[in-house]
């Protein structure tokens, strides 16, 4: 086979459905033997948050951000028809019926397939997220590291 191809995805959105699409494409690309990077920035960082609260010293605003944002992939809302949390419950029920993988399962699968999960450190500072609050096995980088992967990427997506 020819040299490895690369897929890079910027996950900007913190919506459950959009993150799901990103992770499905990422897992598919990994099955295609692509080298895959998902660069999480802004609200997309929430997909990488641990479910449990991690005690970290923070300022008042950062604390508020931390409380208001979903803690972990499973808590994220939908981009459409969220209906104050009813939407995600309903879609998870439907997904179970159709045997589709949930977002946390897709993230585990991504790790298993050696997909590089990158958290943007600049937006982590803005939102007041600490490395200890994010999942293990996540890489930390800035825009230059993302571009290094993306510039010779074959598939680049912004979700």
């Amino acid at each position: 086979m020819s040299e490895t191809k690369k897929t890079t995805i910027v996950l900007f959105s913190g919506d459950y459905d959009k993150a799901m699409a990103a992770y499905i494409i990422a897992n598919g690309a990994a099955a295609y033997d692509h080298e895959v990077t998902i660069f999480h920035t802004f609200w997309g960082l929430n997909a990488l948050r641990k479910e449990d609260q991690v005690p970290v010293q923070k300022g008042f605003l950062e604390k508020m951000f931390g409380k208001m944002m979903p803690r972990g992939a499973d808590k994220m809302g939908l981009s459409k028809m969220n209906m104050a949390g009813m939407g995600p419950k309903m879609i998870k029920h439907v997904m179970k019926k159709h045997n589709a993988m949930t977002l946390p399962q897709l993230i585990d699968m991504a790790k298993e397939q050696d997909i590089k999960l990158v958290a943007c450190t600049m937006t982590m500072d803005l939102l007041g997220l600490d490395q200890t609050e994010l999942l293990d096995g996540v890489d930390y980088a800035g825009v230059a590291a993302y571009l290094a992967d993306a510039q010779d990427g074959n598939v680049n997506l912004f979700i």
Binding site: A30, A31, Y32, D33, A100, M101, M109
Partner: peptide, 13 residues
């Protein structure tokens, strides 16, 4: 069987 996209391709690989 019964698995949704992208699982068939991931399993095949």
């Amino acid at each position: 069987k019964g698995l949704a996209c992208p699982m068939p391709i991931v399993k095949t690989k």
